[in-house]
């Protein structure tokens, strides 16, 4: 069967189509495993694995559809992810009734930030949340007049906006890279590469940890994270990034090396940082929105760090327009 049998746009770049086909292949293998497990190991509870695989299907099909549909769809999808993540984060936080107005203002950063991405106002995007939301929200809280616990609540709300909106927005910002500066996979190829390498790093760290894990790396935050898992995932994902970077990115030489070396570390940092935050909020999973995975925050934790890292390495080493 040829690729043209699938309902994909005719101008979809070939590396992106093959990349998506590869992800779909891995997903089919995972589905087969989830269906076979109950036969190989009867008695054990496999419901969680099945839910996890089913949720992967939904997430991957959604992302694939957005990547094939183009720039507007990808930006809209990231805006939706930011919204769900921020709603989840603020819902868990110890806030009070008089904070409601500031919370509403925090949600306003989503349409504003993504409109700035959509209209390619990169420089204004850079300062909108970290400077102007920071100042205006601080002032708004002061106007409301509650000074008890002011700094703690201000920090929570700022963290929500910078983590869930500003940092994730860098993923959508990749869609603004002009085609002229990119290999054939295009801007959607950049987003694809970022998402796949981030998730793969999570999975490989987990698998290496399960197989070889002995020495805990940061037991106070994440008791299951081991040095063996971290290094195994780092080496494997780093090697894959090094190999595939020329297909999906314009990175060469030092930039290619920096991406391969740094992205897996950024993913690890995002994972454990969000774990620390969830621990402070007193929950293990941020919500039950994605069956088998937890909440949106649990799924995008690594991306909070890898999206800005990916964009900045790319912009510094390989792009003239940013």
């Amino acid at each position: 069967m040829s690729l043209s049998a699938f309902p994909i746009p005719m101008d979809a770049p070939e590396p992106l189509v093959w990349g998506l086909a590869g992800v779909l292949g891995v997903l089919l293998l995972g589905t087969a495993a989830a269906l076979l497990m109950p036969r190989l190991k009867p008695g054990a509870d496999h419901g969680e694995l099945r839910k996890r695989v089913a949720s992967w299907w939904v997430m991957i099909l959604l992302i694939a559809a957005a990547l094939l549909a183009g720039r507007t769809a990808v930006i809209a999808l990231f805006a939706l992810i930011s919204f769900l993540a921020l709603r989840e984060f603020l819902s868990l936080a110890p806030l009070r009734r008089e904070d409601r107005l500031v919370l509403l203002f925090a949600f306003l950063t989503i349409p504003v930030s993504y409109a700035l991405i959509g209209t390619r106002l990169y420089l204004i995007y850079l300062v909108a949340a970290p400077v102007w939301f920071f100042l205006l929200a601080s002032f708004l809280m002061c106007v409301i007049g509650q000074t008890k616990g002011y700094l703690a609540r201000a920090a929570i709300i700022q963290w929500g906006v910078l983590g869930c909106v500003y940092a994730l927005g860098y993923g959508a910002m990749l869609m603004n890279v002009p085609e002229a500066e990119l290999p054939v996979a295009g801007a959607a190829g950049l987003v694809f590469f970022l998402l796949v390498m981030t998730e793969l790093n999570d999975v490989l760290q987990y698998v290496c940890g399960r197989l070889f894990g002995r020495h805990k790396v940061i037991p106070a935050v994440s008791p299951n994270k081991t040095w063996e898992g971290l290094i195994g995932g780092w080496v494997l994902t780093g090697a894959l990034i090094w190999l595939l970077a020329p297909v999906f990115t314009p990175l060469e030489g030092v930039g290619r090396l920096a991406m391969a070396f740094g992205l897996p570390l950024a993913g690890f940092a995002g994972d454990v940082t969000l774990s620390a935050i969830k621990r402070d909020l007193g929950v293990k999973d941020a919500s039950g929105l994605i069956p088998g995975h937890g909440g949106v925050l649990d799924r995008v934790d690594s991306l909070v760090f890898t999206a800005p890292f990916f964009f900045h390495v790319l912009a510094f080493y390989a792009l003239d327009s940013f």
Binding site: L92, A93, P94, L95, R96, R97, E98, G145, Q146, K148, L281, G282, V283, S287
Partner: peptide, 13 residues
């Protein structure tokens, strides 16, 4: 139900 850390303060609107 999941834990709720929301607080109603005496200064509530």
């Amino acid at each position: 139900a999941p834990p709720l850390r929301w607080r109603e303060e005496e200064t509530a609107l």
